[in-house]
């Protein structure tokens, strides 16, 4: 999957959960990705994290890390 697209989607999810405070937001992002992203999308963002995730916001990165760790 196109990594720019996945980064954009992850950042958008993070933007929504940001007002909930750090811990709730990270949990919210992770849960959303687990609930709605197909495994190849999760694999794609994991691959992006390993290679070059410059475009991911810090909050999105934490959420993604939590999502793919579980």
């Amino acid at each position: 999957m196109n990594s720019d697209e996945l980064i954009r989607m992850a950042n958008q999810i993070a933007d929504f959960f940001k007002p909930y405070g750090h811990d709730d937001a990270v949990a919210g992002i992770a849960q959303h990705i687990r609930d709605f992203w197909d495994p190849r999308m999760r694999a794609g963002i994991a691959d992006t994290l390993r290679k070059n995730a410059d475009g991911l916001t810090d909050l999105a990165r934490e959420g993604v890390e939590k999502a793919i760790a579980s």
Binding site: M1, N2, E5, D35, F36, W37, D38, P39, R40, M41
Partner: peptide, 18 residues
């Protein structure tokens, strides 16, 4: 038990070849 692709994701995955 895992969610599948949504329509826009299907298009992207088609272009990627999966």
């Amino acid at each position: 038990s895992e969610p599948g692709l949504r329509i826009p994701n299907m298009f992207s995955a088609a272009i990627d070849g999966s």
